[in-house]
Design a protein around this nucleic acid. Structure first.
Lengths: 248, 248
DNA sequence: CCGGTCTGCGTACAGTGTTCGCAACGAACG
DNA sequence: CGTTCGTTGCGAACACTGTACGCAGACCGG
């Protein structure tokens, strides 16, 4: 390692500074790719320009030749992973199935890269990235093709739901991961505190005692919960589709 | 200012270190309150323990007597502002109106404190804070009172939508604020870039040319968009309410 | 061969969150 | 009254952070 980063021990010597020919050099794409890898592996707060540079056999400040600032790098990273979201393209005879698939794929992507939601909640004009653009475009094609009169309002509704749910899940999963324990383990470990916090609140306490101590599969529960809400939203959207809404 | 922070010029003298009697000393509540004020005024990245300490006429490290870590302080801040969300309590004859009010109030709170969403997207067990707990409790009362069979699924759906929409709005408003310009100004200034990004994507480009250059009121548009989605979600929920869903 | 542009990087700066040990205090107790 | 003792504030220090700047070497067109 550190092949290209040796600081030229005697200044101005032979073997000056040969970039090994196979090495792909430093490029914006390589930087973003490696950043995503680091974010996935170690989380948001673990990514620093210095560490990222080191992983690319480069100095920290070298990155700034290809990326204006760390925030910009984050936006690039988000757009990079946004390419993973799969949306059936073109108008689909079964718009509802297509929307469901898009939503599920979006959620899966966020859960694969939990740092996405914190970045999107914080910064800027991520939405103009090429991949997010073509994502929006495909959704627009789908919803206009389905016959919606206000496609972007419908799309915003769906996306807001999916983003909200996925963000919550991602935050939860991050906390679980930080604890080092499994999800079920973490849940049972958290129960006493949760019960105590719910003390005095009748409905919450009732929900806890009703759930009992049966372990249940948390991942499956989350899937079900997401599916429920998704159906709710799609039902509401479908209702906007059939008939011209007469009043107002 | 800096009354209590003068470092006792000659060690061990008279006038030792008198805490001025009116001064409310340093307490967890005072810290959290001041943190919220700073977050509202200058945003997330402007809040540092040193600056916060200075604003309380205290050293940075003094805060750690009342707060374990900055993350914990953030959770406390979120729970603090969560108290502002108003939910009609008790079962309501018109659950839909009550839910609407709760949703609107939640959105308003997030827009008043745009840093909320970034914090919630990042960290921990905010949901156990007392204010968020009683928020959940009131929602639970509302939805069980309305007759929902899976109240928490319904609540999660609604909250996910509201959170997703508000988060997006908050991020947008933060970017606008950072630009120093008004929202309409920022929009028109951003148009060219947006158009260019939409080039090649038929539906998006169409939406842009259709919208033309008419300024429109962005805040009103956001209100309308939120209302649309909220109605969609509530429609979907209402459908779960009336009849036992026969199949499945 | 020679100029100019581009790319990498060492250094440096102004900050960050947090630990540690010391000093000063208010209250409890003899 | 004097003496402890737990609590609270804090200065200094540590390990890092993002980034500006200017130099040096690499590449490329003339």
């Amino acid at each position: 390692m550190a092949a290209r980063s040796t600081p030229n021990p005697i200044p101005s010597v032979w073997t000056r500074q040969r970039r090994e020919p196979g090495q792909p050099a430093l490029s914006r794409e390589a930087i973003v790719r490696e950043a995503v890898a680091m974010l996935d592996a170690e989380g948001v707060e673990a990514l620093s320009m210095r560490k990222l540079g080191a992983r690319l056999n480069a100095g920290a400040t070298s990155l700034y030749r290809h990326v204006a600032t760390k925030d910009e790098l984050m936006e690039l990273a988000v757009d990079e992973v946004a390419a993973e979201v799969r949306v059936p393209d073109g108008p689909d005879p079964d718009w509802r199935a297509a929307a469901t698939e898009a939503a599920q794929s979006f959620r899966a992507t966020v859960l694969r890269h939990p740092w996405m939601s914190s970045v999107m909640g914080q910064a800027g004009l991520v939405y103009l990235g090429p991949n997010l653009m073509s994502f929006s475009e495909r959704l627009a094609a789908l919803f206009t093709g389905a016959g919606f009169r206000e496609p972007d309002q419908a799309i915003s509704t769906l996306l807001a739901y999916v983003l909200g749910m996925s963000t919550t899940e991602a935050a939860w999963l991050t906390t679980v991961a930080r604890s080092g324990r499994s999800e079920t383990e973490f849940v049972t470990l958290l129960m006493p505190a949760a019960r105590q916090a719910a003390a005095g609140h009748d409905h919450l306490a009732a929900a806890y005692t009703e759930a009992g101590t049966a372990p249940r599969d948390p991942a499956r529960d989350r899937d079900a919960k997401f599916g429920y809400g998704l159906d709710v939203v799609l039902d509401g959207l479908a209702a906007r589709l059939g008939h011209r809404s007469p009043e107002h």
